[in-house]
């Protein structure tokens, strides 16, 4: 086999999200059973709105769960997450095309 294997993830952010969650768990910041309970609850709630497709829906539910989880534990409160997201957005908008994007400060 010489062809590179396709990614297991549809989008790079899904891979980052997966790695971030597993890294938090492996570093002992939360137990996996607690994670699966929270994630299962999100999937269930979203599934009553419409059937979840297992791909894009799945990682959207994963992200929502992790954000809620980290807000509850205080590791990444929602307001701080929103501020940091806005800072990244601003950094992208002022960085000339082709140059690395960095957060100020």
């Amino acid at each position: 086999m010489t062809a590179p294997a396709p990614s297991r993830f549809d989008e790079p952010w899904q891979a980052q999200l997966f790695a971030l969650t597993v890294a938090l768990n492996e570093a002992g910041h939360f137990g996996w059973p607690d994670w699966t309970q929270a994630f299962g609850a999100t999937l269930k709630r979203r599934g009553t709105e419409r059937p979840q497709d297992g791909n894009a829906d799945y990682y959207a539910a994963w992200l929502e769960t992790l954000e809620g989880f980290l807000d509850a534990t205080g590791h990444a409160p929602k307001a701080e997450a929103a501020r940091t997201k806005a800072a990244w957005e601003a950094a992208y908008l002022v960085t000339p095309h082709g140059q690395p994007v960095r957060l100020k400060g």
Partner: peptide, 17 residues
């Protein structure tokens, strides 16, 4: 400017940061 990543991509980046 550099293309803005998608909303979920920025949210993941924020958490990671």
């Amino acid at each position: 400017h550099t293309l803005l990543p998608s909303d979920p991509a920025l949210r993941v980046k924020a958490l990671e940061t």
